[in-house]
Write a protein that binds this DNA or RNA. Structure first.
Lengths: 345, 345
DNA sequence: CTGAAAGCGCTTACAG
DNA sequence: CTGAAAGCGCTTACAG
């Protein structure tokens, strides 16, 4: 009994079927009946029992997710982590009728191919990444037409229409990196921003982080020397003549690596006998953590990749079952990791 | 159909009632039947549908929590936050039959009184804090006798029996503070650990943080000057002659405030014209955040008070409904907050 | 436009 | 020791 649909029906002198129709704004209820039922719902403060609702719905309305993320063939690939979070959330929602199909891409063209394949089927929601502006706009447009919600992970870029993002604010992450490095290096040191570029070109996150880093020094009204090194990822980090000159200086150096590859730097710094350096990088991968524990990296910034995937699935579920969009946009905090607290994240 | 209790019953040639008895290890099933049913459960990989289970149980087996935490009468009292998290979790579990009664204490004697009141009733679980060793041991002992799970929030202390704690590792938090301050102050500065003591005396967390702070310098093999200031909380921070002398030195100063009251320091430092200082404190209360944004506090460490309360309720629910103890012990990460990322937590 | 009935998967009180 | 039945609160297909 308590405050269920049954009690509402009784008070309103209608059947529970009619109460359900009103609750879900389904057609086929006279205005007067609707009014009466709504009044009683309001008065009693009725709240739908989602457990009961889901039990029933799980058996008749399955929910299908399409996941389109970068290939994760390498053992330590970053994307294994969001994928893990996604899988965990799907597992938790399995008994409620949730299933996910994974699609992977390696470049813009395979992203487009896979997204086409997705739209050929009837998915209820899409989780992907906005790495290619045009193709992302296309996904968004098609999805809006079909009224399918889309959540973008990892990165935020400007798109033609309003969109949902679960990602860290990379500008702020860059500012945090600026403060951390400045605390160690001070005003008279030399700063280096290292962008390590992969096959897909320079990533929006990296640019936003670099801009945030530079913006920090503006907010504190300090003009410091900042050099940018754009390095194309290969087997080895090649050091140019210009870089050799920088390395020779006696100044304290602050290195900000804008992606997860800060672990490539210590070897080179050693090789060129570079003196007093401090370093800030991103992501708690095994190799970065090794150097953090070595004191060769001073700070790492975590962006909770696993949680990003988890939150996307759960947020979409909340939207699909309750119409609540609030969990479709998530700001991942800029978590600062040092040697001592690195074991806890 | 799918993989429900019904299918198991059919395959094992028993009724669903019997399957349920086996699943819950309830008495009244012959060995041979039990064996047969268990075999089929294993083969089919059956997993209980918790949604259906809860729907039924919510109507017949209510779950009552007793919450015993410090009084929260002051507007900005820290304990409002764990309480908020507790309330949120209880609200979420309401439709599953969960209710919580709040008890508050102001000192050891009222803690003991309230805990006695709690044991007079038939609660299913207890959430409290281990501020008083003897009284905590007493609660633990009584609860074990009645097989009621207890979760301690905020602080970990050694107790007579194994217990569940949801709290940050304060020793590690102190070490992190050591690293952060050392990065700014260096080896030649003067360090001050400020313990601000309230009516309840010095808090276990504060001692652990102080010890961690000192331990950090040992791990990096540096001997630095560290003074401890134990200050009893009153309307105003009284400065002794000894402290005045410290303040007069030209050295860079690093101040580590081991509780949430770092906001009391900037005024005094200004008053005594203390030069170059850096400060690390705890907790994101309004006043601390103001000084963080002012650059008068450099780092704050967050211990996710709201989440601690939330996690206790959810963890206990998982234990009470699934017998899973894994969520009863939670290590809250040492979150490092600076001006730039302070808005995101 | 509205109601009565079946059923989601599980749990338990009752009967044998 | 075991089974048949009722019911948790909600949703929907069917009948009128």
């Amino acid at each position: 009994m308590s405050t269920g649909i049954k009690q509402i029906a009784k008070l309103a002198n209608v059947s529970i079927g009619t109460v359900d129709r009103v609750l879900h704004k389904r057609a086929g209820v006279s205005k007067s009946t609707e009014k009466r039922v709504l009044k009683i719902i309001k008065e009693t403060g009725y709240i739908r029992n989602t457990t009961a609702s889901r039990l029933k719905l799980a058996s008749i309305k399955k929910i299908y997710y399409a996941i389109l993320i970068p290939v994760t063939k390498h053992k330590w690939n970053y994307w294994k982590l969001p994928k893990k979070g996604i899988t965990k959330a799907v597992e938790e929602l399995k008994e409620l009728g949730v299933t996910a199909d994974f699609y992977e891409f390696s470049d813009a063209s395979s992203f487009i191919d896979q997204s086409k394949a997705i739209f050929k089927k009837a998915y209820d929601a899409i989780v992907t990444v906005p790495f290619f502006r045009e193709a992302s706009n296309d996904v968004l447009k098609k999805a809006k037409a079909k009224k399918i919600p889309v959540v973008f992970l990892d990165t935020e870029i400007a798109l033609n229409e309003a969109a949902h993002f679960i990602r860290q604010n990379s500008h702020i992450a860059g500012m945090v990196a600026g403060r951390l490095l400045h605390g160690l290096v001070g005003n008279t040191g030399d700063y280096f921003v290292v962008n390590i570029i992969n096959e897909k070109g320079i990533h929006a996150n990296n640019i936003q982080r670099e801009n945030g880093f530079k913006a920090y020094f503006k907010t504190i009204n300090e003009t410091v020397s900042i050099q940018t090194i754009n390095y194309i990822l290969n087997d080895e980090f090649k050091v140019t003549g210009e870089m050799e000159n920088w390395f020779k200086s006696d100044n304290t150096k602050g290195i900000f690596v804008t992606n997860s590859k800060s672990h490539l730097l210590p070897k080179i710094l050693q090789q060129y006998n570079v003196g007093k350096t401090f370093m800030v990088g991103f992501d708690l991968n095994k190799r970065n953590l090794k150097f953090l524990k070595n004191d060769e990296i001073d700070f790492l910034i975590n962006q909770q990749p696993e949680y990003q995937g988890y939150a996307a699935i759960k947020g979409l579920f909340q939207f699909l079952t309750k119409g609540d969009t609030s969990a479709l946009t998530v700001n991942i905090p800029v978590e600062i990791i040092v040697k001592e607290n690195s074991g806890m994240f």
